[in-house]
Amino acid sequence: MSAETPTPPDAGGPMLKLEGVCKRFGKLEVLRGVDLELRRGEVVCVLGPSGSGKSTLLRCINLLEPPEEGRIMLEGTEITGEGMKDGVDFVRQRVGMVFQSFNLFPHKCARDNVSLAQVKVLDRGQAEADEKAESLLRRVGLSAKLDEYPDRLSGGQQQRVAIARALAMDPHVMLFDEVTSALDPELVKEVLDVMRELAEEGMTMIVVTHEIGFAREVGTRVVFMDAGVVIESGPPAEVLDNPKHERTRRFLGLVLEH
């Protein structure tokens, strides 16, 4: 995978940089000035209570929800403000996203789910796109399910198809929005395993999750968010075992209690 990702000219600088990103829904301030920097190959796990703005942060990064204030730079190019018009295409060609609710296309089989956007957006030939789809589905352990429709797949299988679908666009960064939260407990591992493999291969990832174990083992950094701001950020061992901030401690206490 990493071999297929072209190296941008500014390989030395940050992959993704957020400065003071704010987002409001009406009067509700969901993000109140978020700063975040991501280097190539980093796996940043974002933790925090529900309503803290984690998902909105991801949706701002790929401009599904354009931020009202602040700047987002992707590979050295600003995608917000003036750059916004072309920013949408720029960011969506480089950033893949996986959703909590899978959002597979129910009228397409697994293979077509993965090949559709390759053909329509990247202008790949159908045969080439299908080949890529099949090899990605094999990688996520679904070589036997190429022709199955989403309603015949388990949640874990659907989510793995969704990951393959995002990877098919050769993204430089992958965003994971609570991708295991809608899954039955016994199906969580198969999805996390795929993500772990991806991380080991060097993919740059932002993972919004409640899986503390995953954050500890796979994350290169853990970010704790509350009420629309980053409360603390650092290596997993530091933030998870030795949190500086009272709110982080309280949250981890509640999550790790049982």
């Binding site: 790929n62 990247l122 679908r165 666009m169």
Partner: peptide
């Protein structure tokens, strides 16, 4: 059609 369908398609660059 659920809103997530449009979002998924848009996030793939469509």
């Amino acid at each position: 059609v659920p809103g997530g369908q449009m979002e998924a398609a848009r996030s793939l660059g469509m």
